[in-house]
Simulated assay, not measured.
Amino acid sequence: MADTLNVVPASVIRNLADKLYEKRKNAALEIEGIVKQLAAAGDHEKISAVISLLTTEFTDSAEANHRKGGVIGLAAATVGLSNEAAQHLEQIVPPVLKSFSDQDSRVRYYVCEALYNIAKVVRGDFIIFFNQIFDALCKLSADSDANVQSAAHLLDRLVKDIVTESDQFSIEEFIPLLRERMNILNPHVRQFLVGWITVLDSVPDIDMLGFLPDFLDGLFNMLSDSSHEIRQQADAALSEFLQKIKNSPSVDCGRMAGILVQRAGALDELTRLTAVTWISEFVKLGGDQLVPYYDNILGAILPCISDKEEKIRAVAWETNEELRARKLDPAEGFDV
């Protein structure tokens, strides 16, 4: 630390841990200036020492004000580095991410603010931390503190912008993260997840449709949520996917047929209607690939013909007629 004191004045170190926000903020601005000068001089060793000081003496401290100062100091260092920040990200971002689980809600609030400022500077270089950031944002979307929640929403919007403009984002790595969270019942988390599904589905280069079987069941789960808004969002997402399926018949309907058959027997009307509507479209589109599933589909459709809801009865009847017109042949795989 003695070497770093030559770079960062003792008064700055003192103010960065002050209980007054203004003093911490001014100290962070001084850190930004110091790092900017070091970057101009190409002295990356001293920059590393400053970052190390902010981590060991501040973000790892037992004192909440030190931790607050540490995260805003790391964000200030990133701003000071500007377009040279990428080479120090491995040192800057992990201690900030670690602070997301801080017991103090004010620290968590400043972590969101700090990460927002870091992301704004480094943009696409941020993607290497996407999995950890997504995990943290998912938890923060249900944070007990409303201020932390709204700060997390702002960060979430920025991360979505960065992801949609990045060519480094991996949908293959993202899907397991999404899948393991789809059955969480918390309404804030559900809104967070549907938001991500909708945003990624709107990106032309990302094929969410190919991964639909991985999260379809989770979306159907949300149709019976107690929140009207979540039901609406899930319904809108499902409608959009069904429209895309109609326009790209190459989709593997078979993998999804089992999910739909289960959902056709759901207790709530919206889930049953949506499942039966999807089955109906699949029967029209599915051709030969659905034949092995026809026995299960028939088992799901027949009870719906006498459903108490008229809309469900109508779709089930139409689907049944479609199946009868197919002249099903056991030789093709239909299990009589």
Rank of each mutant, 00 (worst) to 15 (best):
residue 3 D to R: 13
residue 7 V to F: 11
residue 11 S to R: 07
residue 16 L to Q: 02
residue 19 K to I: 00
residue 24 R to M: 09
residue 26 N to V: 03
residue 28 A to G: 14
residue 33 G to M: 04
residue 39 A to K: 15
residue 40 A to V: 12
residue 47 I to Q: 14
residue 49 A to S: 15
residue 52 S to D: 10
residue 57 E to Q: 15
residue 62 A to C: 06
residue 62 A to E: 06
residue 65 N to F: 09
residue 67 R to T: 02
residue 71 V to Y: 13
residue 77 A to C: 08
residue 79 V to A: 11
residue 86 A to V: 02
residue 86 A to N: 08
residue 86 A to K: 12
residue 88 H to L: 02
residue 93 V to N: 03
residue 97 L to A: 04
residue 102 D to T: 03
residue 103 Q to I: 09
residue 112 C to G: 13
residue 118 I to G: 13
residue 121 V to E: 08
residue 124 G to V: 05
residue 124 G to F: 10
residue 127 I to W: 12
residue 128 I to R: 15
residue 132 Q to H: 11
residue 136 A to I: 01
residue 137 L to D: 01
residue 142 A to S: 10
residue 143 D to Q: 07
residue 143 D to S: 09
residue 145 D to C: 04
residue 150 S to P: 14
residue 157 R to S: 05
residue 159 V to A: 01
residue 159 V to Q: 02
residue 163 V to G: 07
residue 165 E to S: 12
residue 165 E to F: 06
residue 166 S to R: 03
residue 167 D to R: 10
residue 171 I to V: 05
residue 172 E to D: 09
residue 172 E to W: 03
residue 173 E to K: 14
residue 173 E to L: 00
residue 177 L to T: 02
residue 185 L to M: 09
residue 186 N to E: 05
residue 188 H to R: 15
residue 189 V to G: 11
residue 196 W to V: 00
residue 198 T to C: 03
residue 200 L to S: 04
residue 204 P to D: 11
residue 206 I to P: 12
residue 215 F to V: 01
residue 228 H to I: 08
residue 229 E to C: 10
residue 231 R to Q: 13
residue 235 D to Q: 08
residue 239 S to F: 08
residue 244 K to V: 00
residue 245 I to V: 07
residue 253 C to R: 14
residue 259 I to R: 09
residue 260 L to K: 05
residue 262 Q to W: 02
residue 265 G to P: 04
residue 270 L to W: 03
residue 271 T to M: 03
residue 272 R to A: 01
residue 278 W to N: 02
residue 282 F to S: 06
residue 283 V to N: 11
residue 287 G to V: 00
residue 287 G to E: 00
residue 288 D to Q: 14
residue 288 D to H: 15
residue 291 V to Q: 13
residue 292 P to V: 01
residue 294 Y to E: 09
residue 302 L to F: 15
residue 306 S to M: 11
residue 309 E to V: 10
residue 311 K to D: 13
residue 319 T to W: 10
residue 323 L to S: 06
residue 324 R to F: 12
residue 327 K to F: 09
residue 328 L to V: 00
residue 329 D to Y: 03
residue 331 A to R: 07
residue 335 D to V: 03
